[in-house]
Structure formats: C-alpha cells, structure tokens
Design a protein around this nucleic acid. Structure first.
Length: 663
DNA sequence: TGAATGATAAACAAGT
DNA sequence: CACTTGTTTATCATTC
C-alpha cells in the first residue's frame, strides 16, 4: 500500500517528480504521460500569466499541513501521546496508519495530500490558516497603523515645508500605499471567502477590511513558511513600499489557500471565534484570553501584569508578530491539535463502547466541534441522502447543500479510506467507491481545493452525464461540470479538456448522440461496467484486492482504531456507519467475500443492475452501441459487490442505482 | 515481464 | 482564419 500510495501520489500531484521534469520542458512531445501532464499543467496556462500556479499554492499549504503532521508524528513517537496505545495499536495519530509508518521527514506534501483524506487535509490546513490569519490580521493592523502615522507625519511635514512641490510625492506614495493596501485586503478577503477560509460575513468582525493588511503573501510565507520563517519578516514583510501593486495579483493568488474550507459552521466559526478573541482583546474591557490571574497566559510567559492595560502593552511588546511568537503559536496549535485528537479518540472509544453495549450513541460527537470541519455535521446520515441515487440529481446545486455538513464524516467514505495510502483514481475506482457518494461527500472540498479528484476522467465524465436529468451533455457542458465541481479543473484547461475529449472518443461507454441542436454525449452503462470489471470478475485476486481494500479501510478493528486516532472524527458519522457496516459485512466473512461476490453475480445477472443503467442507456443511446454484450459476465462485479457489501438501505440506494457502482 | 488501464500530448480533420 | 469538437496515435506510468 505504501508503495502504491507513494507512486500514486507522485502522479497525482503536479509537482511530482514527473511533473517537475515535464515542467522543465513542457513542450516535450508526447513524453510522459503523467509527468507531462503535470508539467504542462504548471507550464501551460497558469504560470504564464504569473498566476502562480494554484498547484503551488496547494503545495505550499500542504507543506504546512505536513509540518503539523510531522510534528505530530514526532511527538507521538516521542511518546507524547498516550503511552498505552503504543504498541497495540497504531500510533494514535490523526494521520493514517500508513503515514505513521513512514518517516515523518520523508513525507512530502504530495504524499501528505494523498495520505490525508481531503477532510483531514482540510482540517490541518484550516487550523494553520486560522492561526495565520490571526497573525496576519494583527500584523496588518500594525502595518496600517504605521502607514497612517507615516502619512500623517508626512502630511504635516509636507504642509510645512513644501508648497512648491505639488502635494509631496511621498504623500502621494503613501496614499497609494494605503489604497493598495486596502485593495489587497479586499482581494485577500475575497479570496479567503471564496475559498471558504473565512466566512467573513459582514458582521463578523474580526478585523475589518481595512485592517487587513496587505502583504499577505509575505506574511503568509513568514508565518507559515516552514521553518525558516524568520528573517523574512523584517526584510520583506515590513517593507510595505516594495511590494505593492505587483504583489497584488500575485499575492492574492498566492495567498488564497487552494484548499477550501467551506464555511463549515462549526469549525469555521470556532476558529473565527478564537481569532476574534485574540484580536479583539483590545475592545473587550477587562478580559483577554491571554490574560488571567494577573499574568500573561502566553505559553511560557507568565509575566505578571497588574492590569489589562499593562498586559496589553506587554503583549504588544513581548509577543508581537515575530519569529518566536509565530513559533510559539505553532506549538500551541499543535497542542490544541493533540488535545483534539485525544478528544476524538476518547469519543471514539465512547462510541465503540456504546455500540458494543447496544446503546445508540446519541451522537454526541463532542469532538466534532474541536476538530472543526471534521466531524461536524456528520451523522446526519446524510450520507444516504447523498444522491438518492438513481435519480438524476439536480446538478450541482442540489448536491452542494448537502455536502458541506457531511463533509467531515464523509471523509471517511470508503474511498477515502482506501486513500489512506495512496489513492489516485484507479484505486478509488477499483475499490468501488461510488464516485457519486464520494463526490457528494467531498463535494465542497473538491470544489474549492485545488486537489485532483481521485477519479478517472471516464468516471468523472460519466458522473457528469448521469447527474443531469436527461443523462446527456454536450462537450461544453461536460467541461462546465468539471470546472464547476472541481477547483482542480479550473486550470490547465487545455490539458484536461483534451483528456476529456480523448476519453469520450476512446471509451465505448461514451456514446455520442446527434441532437437537434448538436451532439450530446451519453453513457452506455453496460459498456462502462464492462470496462473494468473484467479483472474483477474473473479474478479472484481482484476481488480479493477489492475486498482487502475495503477491509483495509473498513474492516479491522485496527482500522477503526486508526480512524479514531486519526484525529478526524470519522468515526461517528456516517462514515462510521459506513465503516462499521462495511466491516460488518466483511466480517461476515471475507471468505464469503468470494461467495458474496458470486452471489452478487448471480444476482447481478438477473438483476436489475441493468435497470438503471440500461434505462439510461436505452433511452438515450443510439444504436451505436456496438457491443452490448451484456455478456453473461455480469457486468460489474464491482458494482454488485458493492451493493452487496454495503448496506442495502442507506446509501446504497444511491449507489446502486445507476451510476455509482461504477466503482 | 507483459498486458491492461489511465493520463497526457499532439496531430489532424471537420464543422462553425 | 480561429476556435471547437472529435478522432487517433504515441508515450509513459501504474497496477496486477
């Protein structure tokens, strides 16, 4: 698994080695598939116009997440975590087992991305971002104040000395700076909002637009930049004059976190609230989160301060935005994270206990809060709603709403599980992850995060088509779906569009139908199912794999434990449900698996699997379908398997239907 | 090791 | 002529 993951990872990420090479010479002809693509990605559209490939952004963030994760791992290794858990189970880390097994230092951002499920990544990033944001805000505030002061100073000076000089240049410069600053701030805010990082709503006050500083990009670097945060601050960070308009676009782009944090009600708010606390301390009369019992509560400080005023003074002098503070902040963040993890763990345990005792947990999900995004909404079993399945869901809009909440939990969707290690498209498919459910669950994530979705183009195209009421889309509509649903596909358009076309033409499962107004593409489910299954069907190995995959993810207790440990709250929520259910099934017998499969097969054959698909197929597809052999070989074992494996009622419904089984 | 599958690149044709 | 849509071929990567 690990191996896979690594390799997969590489592939997936643009920056991967391959990508790098290709990046160097993007033009190189056919050279290298994956690699080429990556390179191109960066090379072609994005970078040219200084857009600063989003990919980079993502990497950047990933790095941060990586950092946190590393520390985590290190800490854990050090025994920071509960000693007991040590051997019997995986490291109680939030990070998936596989990760834990790797040397922390070895983990690359890309790997991180692969290793951590979207939600996990999100959580990490979010936390960091929240903190950074806080720092940024404070920093900007200061900057602005300084600017104002300077402006005032110069204005006065200007008045006195220079009438001749039409409005001192300096003054103008300052004003421009101010303007730019504000623009930057707004851009930044917009970005953040767009990314969902900040649900900054009007009232939300933390820092008013104006206070938001400009050079986010630098600050960002400073604050987050891996270790070497340091000196930059002084050098560039404070130098407002240097980075101005230029940086505007750049910084804005750069800063904007690729990953979205959708406005998760809980997580976000919690974060915001925190931020607010710290930043707004000035206004809060008499109290400050960092001040209590007459002393400064800044980690490791404990300086005595008679009153709040003094404390504030102390805070501003001793704990200003500098390297040290930044570092301490990070540490604190990790502490919090640890606690959250611990909480998650304990909650998990509680759940397990309750489950064992047949007590339906009321779904407390305490930790959901802490983890932010992570758990949250969870349970609502929304899972099932995902896509009611068979039916065409109202395109995006419909789905969207749901996702947000479930996002956390969803994370754990089977696919995700698999992803523990590696992932990439194939896996997901192989493992029968219903793309629709996975998508539904992580919809928001993919929509905002510049992360490549773990699905093949074919499955995505199919999904796009099946999501529409009439199950047909024009090429352009397919494009639109891609861009709408995935942030990742908002760039490198040439690349993936070409890939889409290529896939449409190449795969028999996509049937072009001449329409009144042009040509539309439809999906021939039979063909689609035929594609992969071959392996599955026949080969026990495949099945085995699949199962193992599932089991891997869901099955073992260890897995669950791991989940639990992974700070993400997977447990509770639907995910849990899923997991458990799945595992349950599996338990039933791996051996059975085969049998199961067979059963399925038999079922499948007679079964309706056709129905849905067929339905679509018949309806739209023209006779082109060359093949149609629905051969005896029942279509997709996978699909079937899936269904079987999963619990019939809930989510399965959705999947079974038309589409999902695709695995 | 080779086959299958997938991603990416690119050439090319036809239509708009 | 430029662009879009489709098709096809080639190459490379990954998985089994």
């Amino acid at each position: 698994m690990m191996v896979e993951s690594a390799s997969e990872t590489i592939r997936s990420t643009p920056s991967s080695q391959n990508g790098v090479s290709s990046l160097n010479n993007p033009t190189d002809g056919g050279g290298g598939g994956g690699g080429g693509g990556c390179g191109r990605e960066g090379g072609s559209s994005g970078e040219t116009n200084g857009e600063m490939s989003p990919v980079e952004l993502l990497h950047f963030q990933q790095q941060q997440a990586l950092q946190v994760a590393r520390q985590f791992l290190l800490q854990q290794a050090t025994g920071l975590t509960s000693p007991s858990s040590n051997e019997n189970k995986q490291p109680a880390v939030q990070v998936p087992v596989s990760v834990a097994m790797m040397s922390p230092q070895m983990i690359t951002p890309q790997q991180m991305q692969q290793i951590l499920s979207p939600p996990q990544l999100q959580a990490l990033l979010q936390q960091q971002q929240a903190i950074m944001l806080q720092q940024l805000q404070e920093y900007y505030k200061k900057q602005q104040e300084q600017l104002h002061l300077q402006l005032l100073t110069h204005q006065q000076a200007g008045k006195q000395q220079a009438k001749e000089q039409p409005l001192g240049n300096k003054q103008l410069a300052f004003q421009q700076q101010l303007l730019q600053m504000q623009q930057l701030q707004q851009q930044h805010l917009l970005n953040l909002q767009r990314q969902g990082l900040v649900s900054l709503q009007p009232g939300q006050g933390t820092v008013p637009l104006q206070t938001l500083p400009q050079d986010l990009q630098q600050l960002w670097k400073e604050v987050t930049a891996t270790q070497p945060v340091e000196d930059n601050i002084k050098q560039e960070g404070l130098d407002l004059t240097t980075n101005t308009s230029n940086s505007t676009s750049f910084s804005a782009a750069k800063v904007s976190p690729p990953i979205s944090h959708h406005p998760l009600p809980n997580g976000q708010n919690a974060m915001l609230a925190q931020r607010r606390d710290s930043s707004s301390h000035e206004d809060t009369p008499g109290s400050h989160p960092l001040y209590g019992h007459g002393e400064c509560k800044w980690p490791g400080c404990e300086t005595l301060c008679e009153d709040l005023g003094q404390f504030v003074k102390h805070l501003n002098t001793e704990h200003a935005l500098d390297d040290r503070s930044t570092a301490q902040c990070r540490v604190q963040m990790q502490v919090v994270q640890q606690l959250e993890i611990q909480l998650a763990k304990e909650s998990e345990r509680l759940q397990a206990m309750m489950a064992h005792l047949h007590m339906r947990p009321s779904e407390p999900k305490p930790f959901s809060q802490p983890l932010n995004l992570v758990s949250s909404a969870t349970l609502s079993k929304s899972t099932s709603d995902t896509f009611p399945d068979g039916l065409p869901h109202p395109p995006t809009s419909a789905t969207a709403p749901i996702t947000p909440l479930r996002q956390g939990p969803s994370v754990i969707s089977s696919s995700t599980l698999h992803s523990v290690g590696p992932i990439r498209r194939r896996n997901s498919e192989k493992f029968c992850t219903p793309i629709s459910s996975e998508l539904a669950q992580n919809h928001e994530f993919y929509k905002n995060a510049d992360v490549r979705p773990p699905f093949t183009y074919a499955s995505l195209i199919r999904q796009a088509i099946l999501e529409t009421p009439d199950r047909q889309l024009t090429l352009n509509e397919i494009y639109n779906w891609f861009t709408r649903m995935f942030a990742y596909f908002r760039r490198n358009t040439a690349t993936w569009k070409n890939a889409v076309r290529h896939n449409l033409s190449l795969h028999k499962c996509f049937v072009r139908v001449e329409n009144v107004k042009g040509a539309v593409w439809t999906v021939d489910e039979l063909e689609y199912q035929k594609r992969r299954p071959p392996k599955m069907t026949g080969s026990p190995t495949l099945v085995k794999n699949m199962i193992s995959g599932l089991s891997y993810g869901a099955l073992n207790a260890s897995y669950q434990a791991a989940l639990a440990e992974s700070n993400f709250p997977l447990l509770n929520s639907p995910t849990m449900i899923n997991t458990s259910s799945t595992s349950g099934m599996l338990h039933v017998g791996h051996d059975d698996v085969s049998s199961t499969v067979e059963q399925v097969n038999s079922n499948g054959s007679n079964s309706p699997r056709l129905s849905p698909q067929q339905y679509s197929h018949q309806v739209h597809v023209k006779e082109e379908p060359t093949e149609t052999e629905d051969d005896s070989r029942p279509v997709s074992l996978m699909a079937t398997t899936n269904q079987n494996v999963t619990i019939p009622d809930e989510r399965d419904l959705e999947e079974e239907l038309p589409v999902e089984d695709l695995s």
